[in-house]
Design a protein around this nucleic acid. Structure first.
Lengths: 211, 211
DNA sequence: TAGATTGTTAATCGATTAACAATC
DNA sequence: TAGATTGTTAATCGATTAACAATC
């Protein structure tokens, strides 16, 4: 069953999950691949292919049971894991991540926030004190950390990752333009390059004008 | 030359652009597809294919001139356009976008910021006053707006987009989970679904454990 | 000239879509 | 049973990689 799921399939799973949550809220208890395809704006064929990567959750002539399928996806993604996360860089983006996202619903517990700006050390975000980034080593020796959310300026990123890597942290949610994977091929990285995405939008806004 | 560039190519352009800027800063004045491939962590073949979509910028036996190529990409992406943008929702993410990103370098000018929280109306982000979202119509009748950055809570998104669409705004940078494209097939949307990306990271953190 | 490196065509690989027998 | 809808195989489509002649 588990013969290497492709990245494209994985990237669609969160969307299935979201839509299944919505269906569940509306107390819909079954859904066909056709209906799901419509919500996802794809084909029924793709929906069936995707879901079948993980096992036969559907029933012929009936469709897929919403709650069961939702729970399966929670399991596949590992949203019930409660990984321990730290935030490095409590600027605007870091603060947004730490305070505005429902991290616990996504399988993450924020356990520490670090910055190097002495002016904000000690103040709190979401009940968590902002600590000096120099206290990272000490912190990690007392607390297991699974993943770091990297929201520093680009210049600080390389050194910070080096430190974190040496402390055994191998998972990164990277908001900087520092190419972590390039220097550390064994880590797991999810990059969020906001400016890249904005440039892509810029291109599509341009597209029509060109013709 | 312009026979429909694929989305995959477009999504790589911002990275070419970034790396070319870095090379330029280091005063490198030419670069081969092989070297670029190494920086981009792809193949020389892909680099040449990508760049050739837009014209022959390279010279045999020499490579690509860094500055020329960078400027071409600026043109292709339209980063020299200065589109006029408004921000809807001045919460943490909205504020991060408006204050921390170098929007002008990416071809965007922030011209207005809107929120419905009366407590923050009138205060400023990056020299721009936060306006009442109800004054949108009036604002748009005086000021040309090309694109909206949508950073509201999900519940507010649908109504807000309806309003904006009726005011003639057809481009969106969407941070909410509201599916704009689904309701308005003619608009250009770039979605940023942070929680989806975090779930993807969650999956890859899980991956090893599973085997 | 010889070496390097492009532009471009062909080959491969992977992802999406179509089709349909199985079956609830 | 008849209709609906799955699981799965085959066909298509698109994107990536390899190869190589052209040429700076």
């Amino acid at each position: 069953m588990n013969n290497k799921i492709s990245k494209s399939v994985i990237r669609r799973l969160p969307r299935y999950y979201r839509f299944l949550c919505e269906l569940e809220e509306k107390e819909v208890d079954r859904v066909s691949s056709g209906k799901l395809a419509q919500i996802m704006r794809t084909t029924a064929s793709q929906v069936r292919q995707d879901l079948n990567c993980f096992g036969g959750f559907g029933h012929q002539g009936y469709g897929y049971p919403v709650t069961t399928l939702k729970n399966e996806i929670i399991n596949i993604l590992g949203l019930n894991n409660h990984y321990r996360a730290i935030l490095i860089g409590a600027g605007h983006i870091g603060t947004a991540i730490a305070s505005h996202m429902k991290l616990d619903k996504l399988g993450f517990d924020m356990v520490g926030i670090f910055d190097n700006n002495t002016a904000i050390l000690g103040s709190k975000i979401n009940m968590l004190e902002i600590r000096d980034v120099n206290s990272l080593k000490e912190f990690c020796s007392n607390t297991k950390v699974d993943v770091a959310f990297l929201c520093t300026p680009k210049e600080a990123a390389k050194d910070t990752v080096k430190k974190l890597y040496e402390l055994g942290i191998k998972n990164f949610w990277n908001f900087t333009h520092y190419d972590i994977q390039g220097d550390y091929p064994d880590v797991k990285v999810e990059n969020v390059h906001l400016s890249d995405m904005l440039m892509t939008l810029c291109y599509s806004m341009n597209e029509d004008a060109d013709e």
